[in-house]
Design a protein around this nucleic acid. Structure first.
Length: 511
RNA sequence: GGCGGCGUAGCUCAGCGGUAGAGCAGGGGAAUCAUAAUCCCUUGGUCGGCGGUUCAAAUCCGUCCGCCGCUACCA
């Protein structure tokens, strides 16, 4: 029986263009998906777009398009970004698809059947100009007594019929769930925040709207469309075939990991499990959240005009280089910064010098001094064994990091071995052995090839194209590139292709 | 205001009760197989301040200072 693994990115809201944050979430998820495939899992990796709600309706109107044409266009743009980032998703879901409407209607019915939905009134201070509701505490009074929003817009008390989800009834069950599943929310700091939020008391949640129509209709309630988050979150279940439990995909639910940005933890860690428990469906196993990127020392924002277009980065530095940088430069859960010098330093020091040059110098010695014929191992010296043992320990270390989504730690562990290999080649000096002891030279080079093979195998999820080329040069058959394949040694006497640089140094373009 | 986190070498950070660590940057040397890449050695910190607990504190407790996060919905 094959182990299966289901992970998701958030579905991206189509009221704006894709930026580096979207690319980051998708790439990190992709690394995890690729690693799990490499580790023998049957992976289902989902991403897509979230297309309903008032903001989309408004953005469409501003673009002079009907909502469906507008979302078709933006969704396609996100899909293109995903492809350019090398993301290996197994499905692309859009909330405007028929399968999703069916799924949402059924989810609603199940929650309603449990008694957790009731009809009430949504009311509050509404600023027409901002198209937003404000809490009493956010308002300020003008000298004449009129209340105004933080933006200065006048507010009025409005009241409309709305269905509510009885979230307040789930407070204790959620807290118990968090206690029983300490790994449900990562990192721990976010878990603490969520728990503290829930402990503070939960209000019932308004889950339908009557003031606009771009949404999924509430069953048997003309005029009501579903709250966008109920609609959006449910995509994860829709993609598993819900409500058709005979679907070949249904066994994937519940998800193993929902990868999210820190801004949407609450929706995933509070509302989503409550909706699911109310509907009698299993709850996902883990919500893993990441931090933000700061660009050239400044927070990225549309108003500052420093929004990074991910496809532009790929054009400038290369896809694998960017994938590597994004996962290496900062811990997953934390905020971090990117800058041109930082990217160039990672590319030139770690990819070109440490790894690229290690492979190149090792393989060129095999090519030149051994006619490209892969030598056999000899009896291992202490130095040989030390390096090989360090490499052999890597798969377990990396697997543990992947399960915690500490992507940068896995890279640190891998680079320790790469640095050790550079130390080893210098100590053993196979170029000198070429004149004194050709047999020993071959043994040393074989230790290096075997070590680089482990490293390249484990780096495939991060840099699929570059590592495919490196593994080609190492003579690893395509069928032996999984973690399990590491158990199959390369055949002695194999003829290796002539080595070619995998990671060119980044050179500043001449102005 | 409440709750939580952080403050360690020039930079980014690890360590979280037992003689201060890594990577990068800086300095010196070796080597020349390799993408002038690599390797070795080295400079550098009263671990935010002040008190306390302890035979022993970056590491536990208190307090102060400075940053940051969370403190509910129309994504």
């Amino acid at each position: 029986m094959t182990k299966s693994f289901y992970l998701t990115t958030p579905i991206y809201y189509v009221n704006g263009a894709p930026h580096i944050g979207h690319a980051y979430t998708s790439i990190a998820s992709d690394v995890l998906a690729r690693f799990k495939r490499l580790d023998g899992y049957e992976v289902f990796f989902l991403t897509g777009t979230d297309e309903h709600g008032q903001k989309v309706e408004k953005a469409a109107a501003e673009a002079g398009l009907d909502p469906q044409s507008f979302t078709d266009k933006v969704s396609a743009d996100f899909k293109d970004m995903t492809r350019v980032m090398g993301v290996s998703n197994d499905d692309w879901i859009r909330t405007t698809e028929e399968r999703h409407k069916v799924s949402c209607a059924e989810l609603w019915r199940r929650i309603a059947a449990s008694g957790d939905i009731y009809l009430g009134h949504y009311e509050g201070w509404y600023a027409v100009r901002d198209e937003a509701f404000y809490d009493e505490s956010e308002l300020t009074a003008k000298p004449d007594g009129a209340k105004v929003a933080p933006s200065g817009a006048p507010v009025e008390w409005v009241r409309e019929p709305s269905y509510f989800f009885r979230l307040s009834a789930w407070q204790d069950k959620l807290l118990k769930f968090y206690e029983d599943h300490p790994d449900f929310i990562a990192p721990t700091s976010r878990r603490n925040e969520v728990m503290s939020f829930v402990k503070g008391g939960l209000h019932d949640l308004s889950i339908s709207r009557t003031t606009f129509s771009w949404g999924i209709p509430v069953p048997d309630a003309p005029g009501h469309v579903m709250y966008v988050w109920l609609d959006a979150l449910n995509n994860y279940v829709t993609a598993c075939g819900f409500p058709d439990e005979s679907s070949p995909r249904w066994h994937h639910w519940p998800a193993d990991v929902h990868v999210v940005g820190k801004d949407i933890i609450r929706f995933h860690a509070v509302y989503w499990p409550a909706f699911l428990m109310a509907a009698g469906l299993p709850v996902p196993k883990r919500i893993s959240s990441h931090g933000w990127w700061v660009v050239e020392g400044e927070k990225m924002s549309k108003s500052l005009g420093n929004v990074i277009e991910p496809r532009k980065l790929v054009e400038t530095y290369g896809l694998d280089q960017i994938r590597y940088f994004l996962l290496r430069e900062k811990p997953f859960g934390a905020d971090g910064s990117m800058s041109h010098p930082a990217i160039v330093s990672r590319i030139n020091v770690e990819l070109a010098n440490d790894l690229g040059n290690l492979a190149q110098r090792s393989l060129s010695l095999v090519a030149r001094n051994l006619g490209g014929v892969l030598p056999a191992r000899g009896s291992l010296t202490e130095d040989d064994a030390g390096l090989l043992d360090a490499a052999a320990a890597l798969p377990d270390l990396v697997r543990a990091c992947m399960d915690r989504q500490t992507f940068h730690e896995a890279l640190e562990d891998i680079w320790k071995v790469i640095r050790a290999a550079n130390g080893y080649i210098d100590r053993q000096a196979p170029w000198a052995l070429n004149k004194t002891d050709k047999v020993r030279m071959g043994e040393v080079l074989r230790v290096l090839v075997d070590t680089i093979r482990v490293v390249a195998t484990l780096l495939q999820p991060y840099m699929p194209d570059s590592m495919a080329r490196m593994l080609d040069q190492l003579g690893v058959p395509p069928g032996d590139r999984s973690l399990a394949g590491l158990a199959t040694p390369l055949a002695d006497g194999l003829t290796l292709p002539p080595p070619q640089g995998v990671f060119p140094r980044y050179v500043e373009p001449v102005a």
